[in-house]
């Protein structure tokens, strides 16, 4: 086994909340030594079988890891980038044999589809979009939505990705005057797309018609909100947000995530729940991910905290290990794994 293959290392036992819920199963080591930026999980067809694979991103390379045995992964393929560094992996729900990445420095400059063809006929990297891109999200049915700034306005565009990685279809959504910060699908509503803006508004589009349906102010206390999850229930829209600019201390503790409810008909909204750190823990949101009823966040303290959104409280804490702070955390889209990464390229699978 080369050093590129996975290994399980000794990790200190945690004296934290419900540590048993999180069990370290393996560690993926990046031998290149370059700065690690993101991780994701995807399905890939290997010898005719769809396998749950892990995708890791360093500054200038993205790697696909296939499962070997229980809790073991082997690097299968790498895509290399020479000019523009990788900013993030763009997870594509419900797809197989396709990875999308955003490249850039401060802003996204390119979005590329990564594929793995053995013949020389097809390219293994295809440029999907370029420009000053502020936000991107992978949607179901091989679609990708992005917003980019032109000289005079903002463009919101959906591309449908063909089997060869090219863009099969392009559709434009009605533009918004304000810069879009994040996009989110509305669970259970295939035709609804939500966006948060830097001016503290939430906007909703109809994906089928491209119509901008409503702009809803959510107040100054939700500045620079990132939307992690949205769902509609009983005529109301529930949205899970995080706030990189949130104050570190509130009377109830340090809020990291927040659930708000909006009535899309009246555009009136209110807070429902604050997801705070346990007493004695410091930090605010740096980076995080929400899947089903679980939220995970890397905090400014270097710790990862996990909340059960239904219970309303923090259920686990992963302190920095090997003297290295955590730098990103993602829920796996293919199984019940939590993928946690450090800057030096080490990825821990829980």
């Amino acid at each position: 086994h080369s050093i590129e293959q996975t290994e399980i290392t000794d990790v200190p036992a945690y004296d934290t909340l419900n540590p048993g819920n999180l069990q370290l199963v393996s560690k993926l080591k990046n031998p290149s030594g370059s700065c690690s930026v993101d991780v994701s999980a995807t399905w890939w067809e290997i010898a005719g079988v769809k396998e749950p694979c892990i995708v890791t991103a360093c500054e200038y390379a993205v790697s696909l890891w296939k499962p070997l045995d229980i809790w073991q992964w082997e690097k299968m393929y790498s895509w290399h980038f020479t000019e523009i560094p990788v900013l993030q992996i763009v997870p594509m729900p419900d797809v197989c044999n396709l990875v999308c990445v955003a490249l850039g420095s401060l802003e996204i400059r390119e979005i590329r589809a990564l594929l793995c063809f053995s013949d020389a006929k097809n390219e293994n990297q295809v440029l999907l979009n370029s420009g000053n891109i502020q936000a991107v999200l992978g949607l179901t049915k091989r679609r990708l939505v992005s917003s980019s700034r032109t000289l005079c306005d903002q463009q919101v565009e959906i591309v449908t990705i063909a089997e060869d990685g090219g863009s099969k279809e392009k559709q434009f959504l009605m533009p918004v005057e304000e810069t879009i910060q994040t996009f989110a699908e509305v669970q259970g509503m295939q035709e609804a797309l939500l966006g948060t803006t830097i001016m503290n508004n939430i906007v909703i589009w109809n994906l089928k018609t491209g119509q901008l349906l409503k702009k809803m102010p959510i107040g100054d206390s939700y500045q620079a909100s990132i939307c992690h999850k949205a769902y509609s229930e009983m005529g109301l829209l529930f949205v899970v947000l995080s706030h990189p600019c949130a104050k570190e201390k509130e009377p109830s503790g340090s809020p990291v995530f927040q659930l708000i409810v909006i009535n899309p008909k009246t555009a009136l909204s209110m807070g429902v729940m604050l997801y705070c750190l346990p007493q004695g823990q410091a930090g605010r949101f740096l980076e995080g991910d929400v899947k089903d009823n679980f939220a995970a966040a890397v905090l400014t303290s270097g710790t990862i905290a996990i909340w059960d959104l239904l219970l309303g409280h923090c259920t686990a804490l992963l302190p920095p290990i090997s003297d290295q702070n955590w730098s990103f955390v993602k829920w796996s889209g293919t199984d019940s794994h939590l993928l946690a990464g450090q800057k030096d390229g080490n990825i821990f699978v829980y």
Binding site: M174, M189, L213, L236, L237
Partner: peptide, 23 residues
């Protein structure tokens, strides 16, 4: 939270907003 503070609610809000919004 108090639902009354959010105003009248419609289960079919998406369809209604789609029919009201400019094409």
């Amino acid at each position: 939270c108090n639902q009354a503070d959010l105003g009248p609610i419609s289960i079919n809000w998406f369809e209604e907003l789609s029919s009201e919004a400019p094409p």
